[in-house]
Simulated scan of single mutants.
Amino acid sequence: MKGKFISFDVGGTKVKHSVMLGDGTILEKDQYDTPVSDLEKFLMEMELIIKEYRSRHSVNGIAISMPGPINPVTGYLDSDTAGNVVCIRRRSIKTLLEEKIDLPVEVENDGNCAALAEQFNGNAQGVKDFVCVTIGTGIGGGIVVDGKVLRGKSFRGGEFGFMITNRSLPDKAIWHRNGATGSLTQNYRQSMRLDTNYRVEGQTIFRQAEQDEQSATMLDDWLTSVSCGLYNLAVTLNPEIILVGGGVSAQTDLLQKIETKLEQLEFWKDFRVPLAVCKHKNDAGMIGAVQHFLLRQGQNL
């Protein structure tokens, strides 16, 4: 489909948004803080962005990427525990927005969107079986088997963050709580006795780890958790490649550090899978959301 599309990528901290072409070309983009608990404000912010973009562009539709088990046809988020954006749980943003604007709206899980973006024109072009893991506030991802997204019976395929990766930490046993960038920054704030609202970026901790032993140990533990989750995906799905995305993937030595950890695991040599970063980094959700929109409008799901 030719034309322009407004794309939103809803995260636990920020909502990224853009106007882009169907080929993934981004014409303009920006972001704002996510209203995580106020549905009225959540919708109002989206409406304002849509109105602003439409004042400058002729738009064909609205594409949304967001966390959680989402029905890709109805846009309904069927969960009480999906991500930090509590105001959209057990609701269909597709339905709520279409009641307010005269444009079609399509919604898909953010991990699946990242996978669709990489499959379309990223680092999984021509790859039939791959896994895309997004590491951010939490951990999500997409599984592609024989060229198609594996959503699962209740649309929970790719919810990697709920894997148990460290049973020795009862309150942090699942991958969300020990391998997400959010868990790393939380540990850093606690160890440095910083206010819980103090903003810490993952790259800050990487730099700090080069200067003090406490940060280095913390980062090493986090890398162990990340590598354990990736190992589990490799031995379970045996994909052609695993792509790692999310803001932390911008760290130039991240994959090298992860691979060093993987090499220490007993059976990695038998199940070794190539690792690569996602090409589209923080734009993957927005690009993949538009690809999902085009698939839906073509009825090719």
Rank of each mutant, 00 (worst) to 15 (best):
G83Y: 00
R89F: 08
R90T: 05
S92C: 00
I93N: 11
L96V: 01
L96W: 13
L97Y: 06
E99W: 04
D102R: 08
E106G: 01
V107L: 01
G111D: 11
G111N: 10
N112T: 14
N112G: 12
C113M: 02
A114T: 09
A115H: 03
A115M: 08
L116Q: 09
A117F: 02
G122Y: 01
A124K: 01
Q125N: 11
V127S: 08
D129I: 10
D129Y: 11
D129S: 09
C132M: 12
V133S: 00
T134H: 04
G136V: 05
T137L: 14
T137R: 03
G141C: 05
G142D: 03
V144C: 07
V145R: 15
G147C: 04
L150Y: 15
R151P: 06
K153Q: 04
K153W: 05
K153T: 13
F160S: 09
F162Y: 08
M163Y: 12
T165F: 02
R167E: 01
S168Y: 12
P170M: 10
D171P: 03
D171F: 13
D171L: 15
I174T: 15
I174M: 12
W175S: 10
H176T: 13
H176R: 08
H176Y: 03
T181H: 08
L184F: 06
T185A: 06
Q186D: 14
Y188G: 04
R189F: 06
Q190S: 11
S191W: 00
S191T: 12
L194A: 09
T196I: 10
R199C: 04
R199H: 08
E201C: 09
E201A: 14
Q203M: 14
F206R: 05
Q208R: 15
Q211V: 07
D212G: 14
D212P: 07
A216W: 05
M218P: 11
L219R: 04
D220G: 04
D220T: 12
D221T: 10
W222T: 01
L223N: 04
